[in-house]
């Protein structure tokens, strides 16, 4: 590990300790809990829940998750390209810098238009 990351590691441990220590310390400092079993029912505006929440959900959320995977992987490919871009321009490699990414984005654009037409991007 490069040494610059060691303070970052200590920092993240410190950050993790903040909520954990506060939760544990105040568990013993605060006054105890009072009240009957009704208090520990799920809060659904006073109506007793009739069904479990561990059921089925709207399938559209699954499509959204898949589209997110595709597009976010695309973003990951864009990051190194963006970082190297100005270096390529300085070396007069503009066509080399632009064209492959245009082809890549063009392929994705075709897919995007197809999804648009199919209505996969709507949640309504």
């Amino acid at each position: 590990m490069p040494p610059a990351y060691i303070p970052l590691l200590l920092f993240s441990l410190l950050v993790l300790a903040f909520p954990v220590v506060t939760l544990i310390v105040f568990k013993y400092l605060r006054p105890g809990s009072r009240g009957g079993p009704a208090k520990f029912q799920p809060y659904e505006c006073g109506i007793l829940p009739e069904t479990s929440t561990r059921g089925r959900y709207f399938a559209r959320f699954y499509i959204i998750a898949m589209l997110f995977m595709i597009l976010n992987v695309e973003t990951i490919f864009l990051f190194p390209w963006a970082v190297l871009f100005r270096g390529w321009l300085a070396a007069h490699l503009a066509a080399f810098a632009l064209l492959p990414m245009f082809v890549f984005l063009g392929v994705l654009l075709v897919g995007y238009v197809w999804l648009y037409k199919k209505g996969a991007l709507d949640l309504a």
Binding site: T22, F26, K27, R30, P31, S33, P37, K39, P42, Y43
Partner: peptide, 9 residues
């Protein structure tokens, strides 16, 4: 910090 801390059953 001093409020009651509920965890549903």
């Amino acid at each position: 910090l001093f409020k009651e801390d509920l965890i549903p059953d």
